[in-house]
Amino acid sequence: MFEARLAQGTLLKKVLEAIKDLLNEATWDCNENGMSLQAMDSSHVSLVSLTLNAEGFEPYRCDRNCSLGINLASMSKIFKCASNEDSITIKAGDEGDTITYVFESPNGDKVSDYEMKLMDIETDHLGIPDTTYSCVVKLPAAEFQRICRDLSQIGESVTICCTKDGVRFSASGDLGSGNIKLAQNANVDKEDEAVTIEMQEACTLTFALRYLNFFCKATPLSPQVTLSMSNEVPLVVEYKIGEMGHVRYYLAPKIED
């Protein structure tokens, strides 16, 4: 028996919006510690790793480990039926091939339940190595979204160059080129608006904007986003999910032919 109730159901709605355009389907792995998901997009260019800790749910019950294969577009459609104020409960039996979602209004007057078929998904689980990154940039999530959107007008790729002075995002294409430079500004009044850079070694990497724009669907989850980079390895784009977990997107770089 698996049962997990999140009082702030809107967080789960946002989580689904953050992954459903990148992943068609994925397996939620549930154990006593919480729910997690790891999946690559269909081109195997990016990887999503998502964790929701058991402590964030009330109640959380997982009698034995289970893997729930889910069509994320279907899950997202059903979650659109929940109001932002609703609590969301996810239930799955031990033998069943279905999952049930229960949406409950804050005063308990309205309770909706939706049942969905589970899928058998063959997953290619990757071992994510522990890495110390050369550059870790924290910036407002909305700013990162804006940068990715703006540079998509110019080209298909963005080159991110991080030095101790700041971080520069550059794109070029048929119409010309564009550069956006952000300086460190850790002294701003509001913590959420800060840009901070921790750098061991300068790095320059190029990434497909198409995927970064998919990652930016997680913007409503968190005021800040963290970019972790080292030369010649995948970029990590991390958004916190309230106090209960995180979604990390990994993106393989592009290299010159």
Binding site: H44, L47, L126, S157, K254, I255, D257
Partner: peptide
């Protein structure tokens, strides 16, 4: 033109 690398070139299958 840059070529796009894949995640499987970096992280091993488990």
């Amino acid at each position: 033109q840059d070529s796009q690398l894949r995640m499987t070139q970096f992280f091993p299958s488990e």
